[in-house]
Amino acid sequence: MPNYWWVNHKQTLRQEIDGQYLWSPKAERGGARSQFYDNMRLASPGDIVMSYANGQIGWIGRVAEFAFTAPKPEEFGSVGAYWDQEGWLLPVYWTELTPPVRPKAMIQNLGPLLPKKYSPISALTGDGNQKAYLAAVPPEVFEMIAAGAAFSQDALARGGSNSLTFDVVTEVLDDTIQRRIEEDAGLETTIKQTIIQARRGQGAFRKNVEDRERACRLTGITNPSLLIASHIKPWRVCQTATERLDGANGLLLTPDADHLFDRGFISFGDTGEVIVSPRVLDEDMRRLGFEKLVRQRFGVREAPAVWMTDAFEPAQSGYLDYHRKQVFIS
């Protein structure tokens, strides 16, 4: 069964509906954590989202991917000028709700169903709650909202041709960053080429990784033609050329292992233990050939010994810490 979410996004409604996503900062101004922003990482593919803006719910969405780190969308312009430039992007496929529903008009019946804590609107007045963004709500809230309106359930279930994927979004983000590098008058041409090659795990970056890593840490494969030089802290969020080219910021992985790592389905501890996301289906891991990862799960069966690889070097620890906190899907 899906989880249900309610998003208050008056300021960014048009951009997020047209772009098929939600985006939030990772923390409030000043660095304080926000449950409404943390919820971006709790939403899962298949979950349902209700779009609330200007006093009405006019769109119903289906989460298409887990959220991941992305820069503030350029189309936001000056909106949220005080927000951090790095946040969570959650791909969502939207379909229109007709006619739009005004929660305030049904607050007497809707109010008792709203969560006592972190509610998106006031259970008494129906007005939007300050600082609320993505809020978890019980299924009964969705059922009441949708009861008097219509939306394409078939389109919502299928996703549609405009539904975003992790690969599509990150490709666009990487293209944007590459363009900025190419236009940077302060960088020499050879440096630009080296940084851009690192995006694909090529050139100096790959050599730097190969100086530290000899094999895929999941499969043990050593054949260079079967290995990808993968960034630990993603290329698109590195702040400097040094980070993008640092061999300590890379692993050699087979394509399937690279996808699991890049998407945050696995990570590594500093001492070499493999960490598996609890939000990946066991059957999917088996089909990929990673039965060992399934057997490792605590709570699924008796807990076996943790799958260990070689310990990482101190220079790799900072990048791994970033991956565990900002990429890994916990």
Rank of each mutant, 00 (worst) to 15 (best):
A257F: 06
Y52Q: 11
P255Y: 05
R295H: 04
I232K: 14
E183I: 04
V209D: 04
P304A: 05
G30T: 09
G247D: 03
N129P: 03
G87A: 02
G46D: 08
S225K: 13
R301Q: 14
R286S: 12
A27T: 15
A257T: 12
F298S: 11
P224H: 11
T194Q: 15
R158F: 00
E302T: 13
A135R: 01
Q316V: 07
V49P: 01
A105P: 00
A123K: 13
S317V: 04
G148I: 03
A248W: 00
R158Q: 06
A241I: 07
F328Y: 14
E188P: 00
P100T: 05
Y82G: 02
Q197M: 13
I145Q: 02
Y4N: 11
T176M: 06
L281Q: 06
I57M: 12
F298C: 07
V101T: 06
L245Q: 13
A185H: 13
D184H: 15
E302G: 15
P91T: 12
Y37I: 12
D258C: 04
Q11F: 03
T69H: 15
D127F: 10
R324H: 11
Q20E: 10
A311F: 07
P224N: 06
F142G: 02
Q326R: 14
E313Q: 13
K192I: 04
I232P: 13
G203N: 12
L281R: 09
T165L: 05
L13A: 08
T170V: 15
A198C: 09
G30W: 00
P304E: 01
G272P: 04
F261R: 07
P255I: 15
D84Q: 12
P100V: 09
V209R: 03
S78K: 15
A311Y: 05
E313W: 05
W307T: 10
E75C: 07
V300T: 10
P71I: 00
L134N: 05
I266C: 10
D47V: 02
E291Q: 03
H9K: 09
T12R: 15
V169H: 08
P278C: 02
Y133K: 05
H259G: 00
P115S: 07
T242Q: 14
G128H: 08
I191K: 06
L227Y: 03
S330I: 00
C216W: 01
W59G: 02
E302K: 15
S152N: 13
P314F: 01
R287T: 03
D256V: 11
M1S: 07
L22M: 07
V169I: 13
G111H: 03
E243T: 15
N223H: 09
